[in-house]
Amino acid sequence: MNKTSSRLAPAAEACAQPAIAFDGVRLDFGGKCVVDGLSFTVAPGEFACVVGPSGCGKTTLLRLVTGLLSPTRGEVRRLGVTVDGPSRDVAIVFQDYGRALLPWRTAAGNIALALEAMGVPRLARAERVAALLDKVGLAGHGDKYPAQLSGGMQQRVQIARCLAQGPRVLLMDEPFGALDALTRQALQDEIARLVRDSGATVLFVTHDLDEAIYLGDRVFALQANPGRLAEVIDVGLPRPRDQLRTREHPEFLRLRHVLFDHVQKTH
């Protein structure tokens, strides 16, 4: 993973540490074991995708990284530090976008919330919000309320709010599920670019195996009951990736086969 970690140039000791490390993590919900024996690391600046059947614990995994959930056993570390709660460095795009936006605030107001939390002065906020709206393709929709936006637009507001945080770690839970194919591809490329520019580490949950290969440096395939890591696939496709050429790349097709075979086996 040297190739990817070299994109980032923060403090040297941070580079030596994995951005995210799971160490024998187990989590029980009301006596039921949801995930077990999770051990893996994600390097700084790496784009890691997570796939797996519904209910295998993908969302749970992301919530463990945020610190909204604590493991029953084992340890989750961010940049070498044990996670004991949410941090502004870690942003998450929630799966249920409809509930993650403040309904009484406009799209712009929702994005501004992140800036308010960081203490950005009022005058500077408007400009940055406008830039973020533009970035996610919502220029001109800033004064609409979430109830007046489509699902895909709400999701983009959520993404913009996360970007406003300027996170070192970006967690995304099926962020593009509600989007049409074209918007989806545009946002895939946009996210890939933004992430590369910011050097953020990404954990990206998706149901779409093609999307996982297209975006990821690695793909983690989970298995259900209890949720555990079944397979890790290295994606050696060159970057920047291209919607047409990458998807026609022989390596892309090979990985697609590997992943599909694997998913068929474990489903």
Partner: peptide, 26 residues
Amino acid sequence: EPRLIEVARILGLPRRKQITKIALPA
């Protein structure tokens, strides 16, 4: 909505702001 409180925590809003900016308006 608990998700909104989580958003507030993720954004690092202090407890007082979680109440005034999120819980009460909601």
